[in-house]
């Protein structure tokens, strides 16, 4: 089961902080992060990688981007 984070409409560093909080809360699994800026997309991906998570998928959905990160 994956957790979902909706970080649309939020400016940096909020999307990254929400992702890092979630990563800390769960030990592994799958997290989906919804963002709507190019910066948030890049920074969330980087945040995940820095914590040993893998960016499994980046899919555009209308004006937003769904980033799926995974561990374990």
């Amino acid at each position: 089961m994956s957790t979902k984070i909706d970080a649309r409409g939020l400016s940096c560093p909020q999307p990254v902080l929400m992702t890092l909080d979630e990563i800390k809360a769960v030990s592994g699994g799958e997290i989906e992060v919804l963002v709507d800026t190019e910066t948030a997309k890049e920074n969330v991906s980087r945040a995940a990688t820095s914590q040993g998570w893998e960016v499994a998928d980046v899919a555009e959905e209308g004006d937003a981007v769904r980033i799926t990160i995974r561990k374990g």
Partner: peptide, 12 residues
């Protein structure tokens, strides 16, 4: 930087 804590202007 490694955690992705960066301002939007940096990417631009």
């Amino acid at each position: 930087v490694e955690m992705g804590i960066m301002p939007g202007g940096l990417n631009r």
